[in-house]
């Protein structure tokens, strides 16, 4: 990889686990505490000004990884570095600085705003708390933020319940931008929105990225959405990153069977009543231990896949995939 610019964010072999709650029976039988392995050995790097799309089905660990980057979930193993410095670094003011430099936009525009605060109150609180602007400049800054995200000034005194999903999502974006972050983690920011509104938000994000030079980690379950905003794309399956590459590499030369499955699943705008075969409900089948986690659903799986976990294959300086047959 060309090491021209130092990465803004580095995720190095990160594991995140959640303890499964143990029932009374488990306690009595002294069963050991087990854990959900939400993220297993994730490696990522994000350059300044770059947007990385993180794609995968629900439950694949995208949100967990995104939240780990925000410090909401504890990292069990591995490191997350921001500007080359560990997120947990004890340097004075580092945490405070992180809270301003790394921000998050949430999936659900209905629950991500405090229902008892008006839009202006929500934004003003951020500005005051972080002293982004002098106290007498707060009102003007709120106005400016509304402008930036394309909301009319009349929305300032509204409560979230009186706004549409798209408008609330703009408020969520304004709240994240209020502290003038360098890195934005967006967790499925358009999944809850209608297509017509979704397009508005995606375009807004593209504009903001241009204007503010933001880096973004854009989480989505739908490849067609990240295609419009990402420089690079990472594909996640059951806690593992199975393929990473530039946008063109992923969309024109996908190397992992799972990526190909995601690509063909996107509905196309062409009228064609496809002849379909009913696929079984495979999503609950467990992979054999030690094998490729995708094997139960993989159309190309062979015996080797069930016995031996595939290593990462580097297909180009920017393109890697974890499949036995990714090389050729």
């Amino acid at each position: 990889m060309t090491v021209a610019a130092a990465p803004l964010l580095t995720v190095r072999d990160v594991h995140v686990r959640f303890a499964k709650p143990r029932g009374l029976v488990d306690l009595l039988l002294r069963r050991p505490a087990s854990a959900v392995r939400a993220v297993e050995g994730a490696n990522l790097a994000l350059l300044p000004g770059e947007t990385l799309g993180l794609v995968g089905e629900s439950g694949s660990g995208k949100t967990t990884l995104g939240r780990a980057i925000l410090g909401i979930h504890r990292v069990a193993e591995g490191d997350i570095l921001y500007r080359g410095r560990a997120m947990g670094d004890p340097m004075p003011d580092w945490q405070q600085r992180l809270r301003r430099e790394v921000q998050m936009v949430f999936q659900d525009p209905y629950s991500s705003l405090n229902p008892r605060m008006t839009i202006a109150q929500t934004l003003a609180e951020v500005l005051r708390f972080h002293r982004v602007v002098p106290t007498d400049g707060v009102d003007d800054e709120v106005k400016r933020l509304l402008d930036v995200v394309g909301l009319p000034q009349t929305m300032a005194t509204r409560y979230p319940r009186a706004m549409s999903g798209g408008q609330r999502q703009r408020v969520g974006l304004a709240r994240a931008l209020a502290v003038r972050p360098s890195l934005l983690v967006l967790d499925e920011p358009v999944a809850a929105l209608d297509v017509s509104i979704q397009a508005q938000i995606l375009n807004l994000l593209a504009d903001l990225r241009e204007a503010l030079g933001l880096s973004m980690l854009f989480v989505a379950h739908d490849l067609s959405v990240v295609r419009h905003v990402s420089d690079r794309v990472a594909v996640m399956y059951r806690g593992r990153l199975v393929e990473q590459g530039t946008r063109d590499e992923i969309f024109t030369a996908p190397a992992h069977p799972y990526t190909r499955m995601l690509l063909t699943a996107v509905p196309q705008l062409v009228a064609r009543k496809r002849a379909r075969v009913v696929q079984p409900a495979t999503e609950m089948t467990e992979a054999t231990a030690g094998g490729c986690p995708f094997a139960p659903r993989c159309p190309q799986a062979v015996d080797r896949c069930r016995a031996e976990a595939p290593a990462e294959v580097r297909l180009s300086p920017t393109h890697i995939a974890a499949c036995h047959f990714a090389g050729g």
Binding site: R67, L70, G71, I72, Q95, Q96, R99, R100, V102, Q103, M104, F106, Q107, D108, S111, S112, L113, N114, P115, R116, V126, F129, H130, G172, R175, V179
Partner: peptide
């Protein structure tokens, strides 16, 4: 579990503030 509480956390608000101003009234 709602995102606005999470958002308050990602903004670095202290727990007492999140508790008293954001969560309690709700």
């Amino acid at each position: 579990g709602k995102d606005y509480i999470l958002a308050a956390r990602t903004l670095g608000y202290p727990t007492s503030r999140i508790l008293l101003r954001h969560a309690l009234p709700n």
